[in-house]
Design a protein around this nucleic acid. Sequence first.
DNA 1: GGACCCTCTGACAACGTTGTCAGCAGGCAG
DNA 2: CTGCCTGCTGACAACGTTGTCAGAGGGTCC
Lengths: 328, 328
Amino acid sequence: MKDVAAEAGVALKTVSRVVNNEPGVNAATADRVRAAIERLGYSRNESARVLRQGRTSSIGLVIEDVGDPFYSGVSRAVEDVAIRHGSLVLSGSSAEEPARERELVLTFCARRVDGLIVVPAGADHSYLRSELAAGTPAVFVDRPAGPGLDVDTVLCDNRGGARMATAHLLAHGHRRIAFLGDSPTIYTAGEREHGYREALGDLVDERLISMAHPELDRVRADLDRMLGMDDPPTALFTGNGRLTMTVLRALAGRRMALIGFDDFELADLLSPGVSVVSQDSAGLGRVSAELLFRRIAGGGGPAERVQLPVRLIPRGSGELPPEAPRSS
Amino acid sequence: MKDVAAEAGVALKTVSRVVNNEPGVNAATADRVRAAIERLGYSRNESARVLRQGRTSSIGLVIEDVGDPFYSGVSRAVEDVAIRHGSLVLSGSSAEEPARERELVLTFCARRVDGLIVVPAGADHSYLRSELAAGTPAVFVDRPAGPGLDVDTVLCDNRGGARMATAHLLAHGHRRIAFLGDSPTIYTAGEREHGYREALGDLVDERLISMAHPELDRVRADLDRMLGMDDPPTALFTGNGRLTMTVLRALAGRRMALIGFDDFELADLLSPGVSVVSQDSAGLGRVSAELLFRRIAGGGGPAERVQLPVRLIPRGSGELPPEAPRSS
DNA sequence: GGACCCTCTGACAACGTTGTCAGCAGGCAG
DNA sequence: CTGCCTGCTGACAACGTTGTCAGAGGGTCC
């Protein structure tokens, strides 16, 4: 910028004014400056601008794994909203490790992001308190923050969705419905288990509940155990997309009523099509990003808690009757 | 930092030394400083550090769409390598629009990223020349850079993979093999088409070639046209993952030999399993990121061009004989 | 006692921007 | 002619950090 000023024969500040389209610069002077910028291939150093203004125009996004379709949907939606607000997205995957989540968040804060969107891996977020107090807003997505942290939260209706799925299977005549879910330490897993129990009432049988994900071997073992029982389940309810696929593989073509939580590509092409409770991952990302930018713009008020609806998509597998004839 | 210095009763520079673990600070003094940091909840402002040192410890990643499983695989691998090098990843989706690609790259450069990883959407990258000259290294992934740009490039063996797939179908007795591919403006699509033509030789029939993606309606129309011919294709070769799924849906259960370029989740669960040419998306990300960090560290030498192998995974659909009995 | 070295500490400038304020020229009213 | 306003421009400080260099205090050696 100094060089540009020299080249155009004006002061530093005048170049700054031209670069920022500030009014009050003579058109001829501005043209001269622009020509100089062109000649020198100058581009403003955003780092310095950030330092001076205290606004980075970037937000931090911590998710569990960009590679997972559910989270990459969230990620893409956040990015779109951010672009619209002239912001960039710094993102990182926590890999479900609280320590890595913490490290990412603190790194983002050190870079002075304008705000944070977090899918928490851990349960303790006290490390965020000082950042929040310092004025960096945060929005928690998919799972709520640990106790004592008063932040905006955007969730799916996990419990309602699980209730809906279980009720759907009950309505199709099933009485022995198994639940295969994530580790109960994960919020969404607990909620879905609750919804399942609520819908099932007296019909709950603890032996038909397995919450072992992500240890897929244990999931498979539990499934085998259940299928070998005297009174085996006639229907399965799986607690997330990855589990649904694992179970489909473990069933190896065996026809059995099944509903999965979380939709996935190609669920419609299997035979029968896999009925699912669909979560709106893009909505999750969009709503949370919009909430965050409202806070960044100074929007006050108490912490909000938004719950997005889920949708049951019947495709065949969830509508199979009990004791369906075994194929192959 | 100023406050910390005052609190601890030392000079600014001493705090800086402690924060950076520089040697030559009395242990007692250091402890006092650390205590002050703790009390005040101080965290270093990276923006200022960046400004002073000229290194941002961040890289820019431009891909086509984070939501696409292939690219999110790349993305995740890049992130892992970056973390290992103490860098953060700024990422953005070009949505296959050259203008957006350019804007993202220039935004990243203005933020003085240490390097760039780009899946190019456009064919003209002359806008990058000045940035490269200014010392910001770049690595192109999945597709090469436009003409006249001498940068490191990491590609898959698109042509070889297509040749392999087509030869596989030929070996199973097919002579009428259709190719449904991406728009020919996309590098990978052209390469795959070439491979297909090379393997097919004299058997090429222009009426069996459709390169209309991403307009899925046109793909479906082309497929219908081909299937309605007097001498319809007995096998299909699809040019990317999304196309494979579109075609599978359009076939609506109709049994027909098929090989897809690019693997996808659940390809093994369909019946028959979908044979694919699998690209190593994680490898693409990892290799390109490692190459980039070697450049950032000052690694010289001429631009490298790495080609990663692909793998044919037979799952059933690619092994169906011609004139297979029509199911359903 | 003086020269020297070593350890620890601090003052100051610089990175590249932008906000504040002052100054200059010219026009216009009184 | 004076005073004031308007339009344009520039000098300077400040953002928070780090690199450079200098200095203070104490010990060692001749």
